[in-house]
Design a protein around this nucleic acid. Structure first.
Lengths: 343, 343
DNA sequence: AGTGTTATGATAGACGGGTTCTTTTGTCTA
DNA sequence: TAGACAAAAGAACCCGTCTATCATAACACT
């Protein structure tokens, strides 16, 4: 353990002063060497660097932050790291952060405890962060009343707009319109919907998009089914539809995993995909898990979302103060789970 | 933006002194209120709290850390957040960190640049971390020569043991033995292997386990195949094996995704699973993506791994200084992709 | 010898929270 | 009324880095 030798308890980390003493120079010279400033003799520089190496000097992040007033880190709060949506958010933000020389301070909320924006903000505010990003995958009870902590950039990742906070998300409403338009063009009208759990914000918007698309064409939406995002729940829903709805010609599953389950169910029920029933999903998440992925879906540019989120959480000149609601459009990926409705 | 009113540039955040001035008390009284210490008059307390609220006071992490010498955060360095192994590592560590009231400071290394332990350590050391965790999913060029930074707990997540650094990982060798024993008990001997990319450390150990298990039974291992962890690569390998190896009775794919692809390939080639060929994978990662997951596999307790990693990165009393290599065993999950070899 | 340049040191202060020690104020009792 | 004692609040200082002055050498060039 690199501790200051002159400190008998051995609990204090090595400081510049310790290095200076060891190298027989002043603390300022150590500072000059540490920060690569000019006007240091080459021999002196080497002596100081040797002392740093020897003692295991690492500049105090606390001291530097205190001085600079910056942490070079953004806080990210999610409820469950393993969920696909959160994972891709972390990935996008991580890559944006790296571009700006920042780190991410990750806080996972307990999966059991009640989630609120105030609580998330309170937790993050105690950490070394220049900005706060909160993933709100389910509606927070205090969303309406929430006031962001003054003095620190705050972004909520959600489709809902907020009067006092910038919100950013993939366009979970627009992706439904993209898929529905695609199905309409193929001649489908009887399009059933298999959604995620109703508390999910993503689900609420994807479903609203499906419903609005139908109503715009004056088609009465049939009862939507509720799954839990898993392939098994998609399978069950697919089984049910295959047995109970003879007029259905297409299924819109709110994510690829359920779509994959639904396809399996349809085939087990003797229906062909896409000849008898077209199926679409969202996320473009199957490639690693399923061979010959043929699912028509929507892909989101998650890195772009990450950059947008990052940009608004840590505003550099100009962007500060403006509250906006950003929706990043997805891209339709047409594969072979959809086909023209047979005459 | 909550800035100190007396500061004309408006760039300094609100400090205790600002609150004290606003409330007409001393900075120490503010400190007492902030930390809930006794000996503060109820009226004074309320006055101070009102001032805090008004100004948007948030205690400075830098100031506190400088004083305490602790950051209450561990650094985690991974090369790619989205890889299943890394993701589950983050999840396990996040839950362990939360139990201890810590946050995670995440640094993603560029996917393009050369990865070295020294570079990872250098980056992490500049951040507010009490310990460093480095995920080494591929062999670092400086693994042998690497010396951990003195004064800060360091853990590498990898199967390789290191003389000066504690390493922790799921037992990627032992999982192969579990699966091979299971297949042996079912009477299989001609067991082909579909591995991940050869630079992967996990791959190296899973493959070594397969090979050693065969050689221990004096069975000549047939040429292993190399995939890229994806279902498509598993499919291609499965296709190849179905067409070229009539004596094969079982396939061990080094992860579930490739196993899933291989099963699809076998079935497309007219072979039944498990009647004609048994297939096993590793990770137990399919449930969300595939309906009626029937794959026999190995599941790792990733939360336990997270806790172990965390414990050794931020040692509390006792554990410090000891360099160990921890391998956390997996659990065999028998489903229906494996069956007794027909007579 | 005079001028300028480079290398280094000494000293101090800013940053914000927390601890320790001290002082003031108020209340109760002998 | 003096003394005891506790509650309330303040003053000073520390943590480590960086910067801003000044001061003081050593050295080179004219």
């Amino acid at each position: 353990m690199a501790r200051c030798p002159s400190n008998d308890t051995g609990t204090r980390p090595v400081s510049m002063a310790d290095v200076a003493r060891a190298a027989g120079v002043s603390q300022q010279t150590v500072s000059r060497v540490a920060n690569g400033l000019p006007n240091v003799n080459e021999q002196t520089r080497q002596r100081v660097q040797a002392a740093m190496q020897e003692l295991g000097f690492r500049p105090s992040y606390a001291g530097r932050s205190l001085r600079d007033g910056r942490y070079h880190s953004v806080g990210l709060c999610v409820n469950d790291v393993t969920k696909f949506g959160n994972l891709t958010m972390i990935d996008g933000i991580a890559s944006a952060a790296r571009e700006r020389g920042c780190a991410i301070t990750l806080v996972e909320m307990s999966k059991t405890e009640e989630f609120s924006l105030a609580e998330a903000t309170r937790r993050m505010a105690a950490l070394p962060v220049d900005g706060i990003i909160i993933g709100m995958s389910r509606m927070a009870p205090d969303f309406e009343t929430f006031d962001p902590l003054p003095g620190i950039g705050t972004v909520i990742v959600t489709m809902y707009a907020h009067p006092r906070v910038t919100t950013v998300d993939s366009d979970h409403y627009g992706c439904s319109l993209l898929l529905m338009d695609h199905l309409f063009e193929l001649g489908h009208e009887q399009i059933r919907y298999i959604g995620g759990p109703s508390f999910s914000v993503d689900e609420q918007f994807r479903r609203a998009g499906w419903q609005d698309a139908l109503e715009r064409k004056h088609i009465e939406p049939a009862e939507p089914l509720e799954g839990d995002w898993s392939a098994n729940s998609g399978y069950e829903a697919g089984r049910y539809l295959a047995e109970h709805d003879r007029s259905m010609t297409a299924i819109y599953a709110a994510n690829d995993q359920m779509a994959n389950g639904a396809i399996a169910a349809l085939r087990d029920s003797g229906l062909r995909v896409p000849e008898d029933v077209s199926v679409v999903g969202v996320d473009d998440s199957l490639d690693d898990f399923v061979a010959h992925n043929e699912l028509t879906t929507v892909r989101f540019d998650l890195h772009q979302r990450g950059r947008e989120v990052f940009e608004h959480a840590v505003p550099e000149a100009g962007t500060a103060g403006k509250t906006v609601a950003i929706r990043i459009p997805g891209q339709l990926i047409i594969r072979h789970s959809t086909a023209m409705l047979r005459a």
